[in-house]
Amino acid sequence: MIGLVHFLTVAAIVFAIGLYGVLSKRTIVGILMSIELMLNAVNINLIAFSRFITPEVLTGQIFAIFTITVAAAEVAVGMAMIFRVYYDRNTVHAARLDEMRW
């Protein structure tokens, strides 16, 4: 019997993989991809809770829709920033973009 716990487990694993990617990738494109993984894990959680805890209302699915909206906006702006940084600095390596480091 597949229940809430199974879906939450998958989401937790995907979130941790995304967390690892955000903290360890060298290029900012890879970091952005890992952020998408984390957002997807959150969406799985929201929909699983909506299905198993409150199946008669769709609040979780509404939340997931807005999460997807924000994720799409985030990717658009993030990729634009990456293009800009690449145009100006000619690199997408996070370690070389350290002008603002104190």
């Binding site: 229940g3 809430l4 716990v5 939450l8 487990t9 937790a12 694993i13 979130f15 941790a16 967390l19 299905r51 198993f52 805890i53 409150t54 199946p55 008669e56 209302v57 769709l58």
Partner: peptide, 22 residues
């Protein structure tokens, strides 16, 4: 993070609803 989260998931008493699924 995975270990802690899985522990929390396993130990939390979830209140499943038996409402009608939309």
């Amino acid at each position: 993070f995975v270990v802690v989260t899985l522990g929390v998931i396993a130990t939390t008493p979830w209140h499943y609803s038996s409402g009608v699924i939309v």
